[in-house]
Amino acid sequence: MNNELTFRLATKDDLPEIVAMLADDTLGMGREKAGEHISDKYVRAFEKIQADPNQELTIVEMNGEKVATFQMSFIQYLTYEGGLRTQIEAVRTHSKYRGQGIGTRVFEYAINRAKEKGCHLVQLTSDKKRPDAIRFYESLGFVASHEGMKLKLK
């Protein structure tokens, strides 16, 4: 079999697989609701993402199967002389394909995509409860250069 990855923008038909990947880990299973019926909340969120030119929700396929997903948000700001950065979120590889180098290839693609768009910086956050993910990001060259803070509203 050919293990070439293809990257494309997600469609509404991809939502069940995307939500299943988001739910397929210790943290995700407690906050996502995967199943045959996809909540209207996911559909509305997808429609907003799809309508925003600064958002790219990507699905990754290999041999006709959906193996990974991630979202890139392109953020325009004034610092760095009006610089553009990208935030990478919701990176997931289907559990049956983990450990095969797909994550590295996903980030190679995402970093190249950020360069194509003219970004000077790629940033991401990772829950401190995901030490394996943090080590993976560090192996790709990401540095914990800032202290992040969050305020939960719900």
Rank of each mutant, 00 (worst) to 15 (best):
H94Q: 15
K128I: 13
N112D: 15
L22I: 02
Y109T: 10
E36Q: 05
S95M: 09
P53F: 00
I59N: 02
Q123Y: 10
G141L: 13
C119T: 01
M29N: 11
M29L: 10
N112R: 12
L9Q: 14
Y42C: 01
G101Q: 02
D14W: 04
G103P: 08
T6P: 01
K152P: 14
R92W: 09
K48Q: 04
A68N: 02
L151Y: 13
E81T: 09
I49S: 01
V143S: 08
R8V: 05
E17Y: 00
E65C: 12
I88A: 08
P16M: 03
Y137S: 03
D52M: 00
F136I: 11
L121K: 14
V43L: 10
Q71H: 12
R105C: 11
I18S: 00
R105W: 05
L57C: 13
G148Y: 09
A23G: 07
A110G: 07
G28E: 00
A51Y: 02
D52N: 13
L121T: 09
Y137Q: 10
A110L: 07
G82F: 05
L140C: 12
P16N: 02
L151F: 07
P53D: 03
F74H: 07
I38N: 03
F136A: 04
Y80P: 01
K152I: 13
G99D: 10
R98W: 10
A45E: 05
R130N: 07
L27N: 04
Q55E: 11
V43D: 04
I134D: 11
A90F: 11
Y77K: 15
R113W: 09
G148N: 07
I75W: 04
T93K: 06
L78N: 08
G30L: 10
Y80F: 15
A45N: 05
G30H: 13
L151D: 06
V143M: 07
I134R: 10
E61K: 06
Q71C: 12
F70P: 02
I38C: 03
V43Y: 08
H37Q: 08
D52H: 01
A144T: 13
R92L: 05
E32P: 01
I111D: 05
G83P: 12
V67G: 02
D13E: 15
Q76K: 13
K129G: 09
T26N: 10
F46K: 05
L5V: 12
R105K: 15
L22P: 05
P131G: 06
K117W: 00
D127W: 02
E61Y: 08
L5N: 01
D25S: 11
Q71F: 00
G141S: 10
L57H: 03
Q87I: 08
D40L: 12
A90C: 15
H120L: 12
Q76A: 15
N2V: 14
P53E: 00
K129E: 12
A133G: 06
F107Q: 08
N3K: 14
A90P: 01
R135G: 06
E4M: 14
